[in-house]
């Protein structure tokens, strides 16, 4: 018995520019989760380097990574990952309370974000009182409240119906286009991936294709998505 060493990603080299909207696709086991974790500073690569916003973070300590996540990253998850029995406002302000200087949380800013995401008036609600779409919007609000350099969305529509999925994807596209937030989206759904402007397909830990979404194989209806 014993852990078998598996390299989830191998020789992957890519650059994502500021303001890009990138979708990462691939079957399960393709290494997209690992890539997500490394990009999200939740994990460090065993080899190679990762420059985030010009900083080499691959050898950072756990605490340094936590600080980077707090300052430069926003996360959206498939299962929303909101704190239950915690109000919407408290969920959204969560990244701010772990700031080094716990200055007054800017409630105005939170309200502005909530309003822009159609969450006005839900301040005192709890996540379980909201619909899936609303919950994901709360998660988006939480992810952008710290004005991240990079927004990571891990299967953000996986738990949503198609209409709500569209809503959420439109919000993401809007954040990318109007607010210039860089987004990396991980999905296995072709129609979701097509919201991005660049699609990276992974297979067995290697980049299979990396091209603008218009020219991606995915646009080819014959591709077995």
């Amino acid at each position: 018995m014993g852990a078998v060493k598996v390299s989830a990603l191998q020789g992957v080299s890519l650059a994502i520019k500021k303001g890009e909207f990138v979708a990462v696709m691939g079957a399960s086991g393709s290494g997209k989760s690992t890539m997500m974790h490394i990009l999200g500073c939740l994990d460090s690569p065993t080899q190679g380097s990762y420059y985030l916003d010009g900083i080499e973070v691959s050898r950072f300590s756990k605490n340094e990574l936590a600080e980077i996540r707090n300052k430069k990253l926003g996360f959206i998850f498939q299962s929303f990952n909101l704190l239950s029995r915690t109000t919407v406002v408290e969920n959204i302000e969560l990244p701010l309370i772990y700031r080094k200087k716990t200055s007054k949380v800017d409630l105005d800013k939170i309200h502005r974000i909530m309003h822009s995401l159609g969450l006005g008036g839900f301040d005192r609600h709890y996540p379980n009182q909201l619909s899936g779409g609303q919950q994901q919007r709360v998660a988006i609000a939480r992810a952008i409240v710290n004005e991240p350099t990079l927004l990571l969305a891990d299967e953000p529509t996986g738990n949503l119906d198609s209409a709500t999925s569209k809503d959420v994807m439109n919000i993401l596209r809007d954040l990318n286009q109007n607010m210039g937030i860089t987004i990396v989206l991980v999905t296995h759904e072709t129609d979701i991936a097509l919201y991005a402007r660049r699609i990276i397909v992974l297979k067995d830990g290697k980049v299979l294709s990396d091209c603008p979404s218009q020219s991606s194989v995915l646009s080819d209806p014959s591709f077995p998505g």
Binding site: G40, L42, K62, N63, A66, E67, R69, N70, K71, F75, N81, L82, L83, L94, P95, Y98, R99, R142, N146
Partner: peptide
């Protein structure tokens, strides 16, 4: 555990 994971993801440090 999940709550701890969420807090860590948004930047809670070990000591937090």
């Amino acid at each position: 555990t999940r709550e701890i994971g969420i807090r860590m993801a948004v930047g809670a440090k070990e000591k937090d």
